[in-house]
């Protein structure tokens, strides 16, 4: 156990925070969908996966495309898919055409996940693809901060530069999203619908339009976080499943439907995973158990306090 030093712990914490910020962005989409539509989309990870593949194909087709534009296009593509799905399958729920809408939504989004996953296996095949990091860093040596193309050393703690870029993208997008939700008319409309549908429609907001918009925005956030992370992980068509379960963990941890909860939950999950994997006594199993730590926390939260940190009353 002599490898556990103060610096090692700080490094674990930092890695956890970096990845947690991206998890937070992904979960923000899911929590938005839940707060407005009242359903959990079990296909959330599949939109994350599609976002990554859109960037992969764009960069392959147009070699010198600006990666940030590719991320925006990935967001647009997943937005459109989400909107189409919402209009075709979820709109009838609001109109009362469906008996037992809660169960319908669970099974339907589950089916969507299965569908999208196999469409992508059909198109890209089961082999992992890898996207090169978006930017090379300049070489700098300031003692406390050293940079090379692929790695940054911050007080001698190595951080991969592609992870740093992904986190940067996530932070910017999260800030934009917070601005959109709190300052624009549409964003406040979404909040209004999530608080009280009837009152919102009285003041001139169309709840069913807001449903579509919320679902589209939610899937867009998932797609963009996938697009940002595609350089960090090897991408396979089932990469969305762990992403889905991470989003579930986060929104339950933070309280279903709460946006600050999603951000905080993302950080907590990132740190728990990082520490769990780093400190597990048997290093050969630590990586295999990395996802299990989050799930264990999740199951406990569901059983003990299903409302999470900031959840509304059930």
């Amino acid at each position: 156990m002599d490898y556990i030093t103060g610096q090692f712990l700080v490094n674990l914490l930092m890695n956890g925070i970096l990845i947690g910020l991206i998890y937070g962005l992904m979960a923000l989409g899911l929590t938005l969908i839940f707060s407005v539509l009242g359903i959990v989309s079990f296909a959330h990870g599949e939109f994350y996966m599609i976002g990554g593949y859109v960037v992969y194909y764009l960069l392959q087709a147009f070699g010198n495309l600006e990666p940030m534009i590719a991320i925006l296009i990935a967001g647009a593509v997943t937005f459109v898919i989400g909107v189409i799905f919402e209009l075709l399958f979820l709109q009838p729920m609001g109109k009362g055409d469906i008996e037992r809408p809660g169960e319908y939504a669970i099974l339907l989004t589950f089916g969507l996940a299965f569908f999208l996953q196999h469409v992508m296996i059909g198109i890209v095949g089961p082999f992992p693809t890898k996207v090169d990091r978006f930017y090379d860093f300049a070489e700098i040596d300031w003692g406390w901060l050293r940079m090379k193309a692929a790695t940054v050393w911050f007080f001698d703690m190595p951080i991969s530069s592609s992870r740093l870029i992904a986190t940067g993208v996530a932070v910017v997008l999260t800030a934009l999203m917070i601005w959109f939700m709190s300052k624009t008319w549409t964003g406040r409309g979404l909040q209004a619908v999530s608080q009280d549908r009837q009152a919102a429609s009285v003041v001139g907001i169309n709840p069913s339009h807001m449903n579509t918009l919320a679902f589209g925005l939610g899937t867009m956030l998932a797609g963009m976080s996938g697009a940002a992370l595609v350089t960090v992980f090897a991408w396979v068509p089932w990469v969305g499943m762990p992403a889905s379960s991470k989003s579930f963990i986060i929104i339950v941890l933070g309280g279903m439907g709460s946006m600050p909860g999603a951000l905080l939950g993302g950080l907590v999950l990132g740190i728990v995973e990082s520490f769990g994997a780093g400190l597990y006594p048997d290093p050969s199993k630590a990586l295999a158990y990395k996802d299990a730590f989050g799930l264990l926390v999740f199951a406990l939260v569901l059983l003990v306090k299903p409302t999470g940190f900031f959840g509304r009353k059930l």
Partner: peptide
């Protein structure tokens, strides 16, 4: 105590934990 979405989430988590333990 868990209903609908919460039940679905919990059982998915349980199922994944079982699979991860068998894997590890």
């Amino acid at each position: 105590r868990l209903r609908r979405t919460y039940l679905a989430l919990f059982t998915i988590a349980f199922s994944e934990i079982v699979r991860l333990i068998i894997n590890a």
